[in-house]
């Protein structure tokens, strides 16, 4: 078996997942009147939402800041590197059914495919935007009124987009039980890697997949 995610990455993932879950739930309660009516305690829900939002970058920052974050840092490098294979991969997505499968099969994908890279970049960027707009909404005194309205606008629509992307993320995980299992236990089979991440297996995109 190969180690896909070490324990630091798994802890960060699940802490983040929990925070996102709480943010989505409390956000829905603040945003949708029928849910808010059921739960009540608006001030408390608001505080939970704000503090979970502020806490969002913390696990990632802690994980990156020490010797324990080596695997995570290596994976971030992978996320940030856009290769010709990624472009081919995205182009192949545009093709129809069997044609698409054939083109995708021929691409030597690294540990993460272009879709996963896009997802990571989107979540990172939108997380920061949500943080900024959330701060304007919560501590609005210094900002002009139109900025507050604008921040609300961005926060609302981006929340919707993030929600859809997360549903997509969970959907993809459910479609690939081996990949999902590796986010719980860390390891994944060599067969899976050969099919989905050949360049990772052979060490062509950073350190090769470590054996476990």
């Amino acid at each position: 078996m190969l180690l896909r995610f070490d324990w630091v990455e798994r802890v960060v993932h699940w802490v983040n997942a929990t925070l996102f879950g709480v943010l989505i739930f409390t956000g829905a309660a603040l945003y949708l009147e029928p849910i808010g009516r059921l739960i009540g305690r608006r001030a408390l829900v608001e505080d939970i939402h704000v503090y979970c939002g502020l806490a969002l970058p913390v696990p990632l920052v802690i994980a990156l800041s020490g010797s324990w974050g080596k695997a995570l840092r290596a994976d971030l490098h992978r996320f940030n590197r856009w290769t010709k294979e990624d472009r081919d991969w995205l182009r192949a997505l545009l093709r129809a059914g069997p044609e698409r499968r054939r083109s995708l099969g021929g691409i030597r994908v690294g540990k993460f495919n272009a879709g996963q890279k896009l997802n990571a970049a989107f979540i990172a960027g939108s997380g920061l935007v949500m943080l900024g707009t959330g701060v304007i909404m919560r501590w609005y005194h210094p900002w002009p009124l139109t900025w507050r309205t604008g921040a609300t606008f961005v926060h609302d629509w981006l929340a919707l987009a993030i929600g859809l992307v997360i549903i997509g993320h969970i959907w993809m995980a459910l479609m690939d039980w081996d990949a999902m299992r590796s986010m719980f236990v860390g390891t994944i089979s060599r067969t899976w890697a050969k099919r989905h991440a050949p360049a990772w297996l052979d060490g062509e995109d950073g350190p090769p997949a470590p054996e476990r």
């Binding site: 989107f122 990172a124 960027g125 935007v129 900024g132 139109t146 309205t149 921040a151 606008f153 961005v154």
Partner: peptide
């Protein structure tokens, strides 16, 4: 890409009021 999103976010804050209308 992350930077691009931050830029879009900032534009959204400044212009969002009108865009929403």
């Amino acid at each position: 890409m992350v930077l691009g999103m931050l830029g879009l976010g900032a534009v959204g804050v400044v212009a969002g009021s009108r865009v929403q209308d």
